[in-house]
């Protein structure tokens, strides 16, 4: 069956093990990720919204092989990133970057899902303001 499908039109091959080891250059991978992927997938791959209810999925916990294959094939509405655009080395660096942010604690402290200002603002709004209001009430209350 697979051979028959391949005889009609060969698609991209399954990536070579060598590019899936996540031992490339995470700095370079991070730069490529921010240029090519972060606008949809979020700067650390925490997912993001597209038009009309579609979304770009989270990349945490996705296997190296699936990330690689997604870049070559462009599943659903994701565009294709062929080897002329991102060389296999580049793809390896991107995977390295993703695995790096997945496996290392965030230096900024608790990241609240890495989804940026909405979560952070809500946190400050509820806990920060809540604390201030509680103190105000306590200041104004008479001791019993």
């Amino acid at each position: 069956m697979a051979a028959w499908v391949a005889s009609l039109a060969p698609g991209p091959a399954i990536p070579d093990e060598e590019y899936l080891r996540a031992d490339g250059n995470p700095t370079h991978g991070g730069e490529l990720f921010r240029i090519n992927c972060a606008m949809c997938h979020n700067a650390v791959g925490a997912a993001g919204a597209l038009t009309e209810g579609k979304w770009a999925p989270q990349l945490k916990g996705v296997s190296e092989k699936h990330i690689y294959e997604a870049m070559v094939t462009g599943p659903q509405n994701m565009p294709v990133f062929n080897d002329a655009n991102l060389t296999p080395e580049d793809k390896k660096d991107i995977i390295t970057y993703l695995k790096y942010v997945e496996n290392n604690p965030s230096v900024g402290g608790y990241e609240l899902g890495s989804i940026g200002p909405v979560a952070e603002g809500l946190f400050v709004w509820i806990f920060g303001m809540g604390f201030i209001i509680a103190i105000t009430v306590w200041l104004g209350a008479k001791s019993n």
């Binding site: 606008m39 949809c40 597209l50 038009t51 009309e52 579609k54 770009a56 509405n77 565009p79």
Partner: peptide, 11 residues
């Protein structure tokens, strides 16, 4: 730069 391959929407 959020390009959707099939709808050709750019968001």
């Amino acid at each position: 730069a959020l390009y959707e391959q099939h709808t050709h929407h750019l968001l």
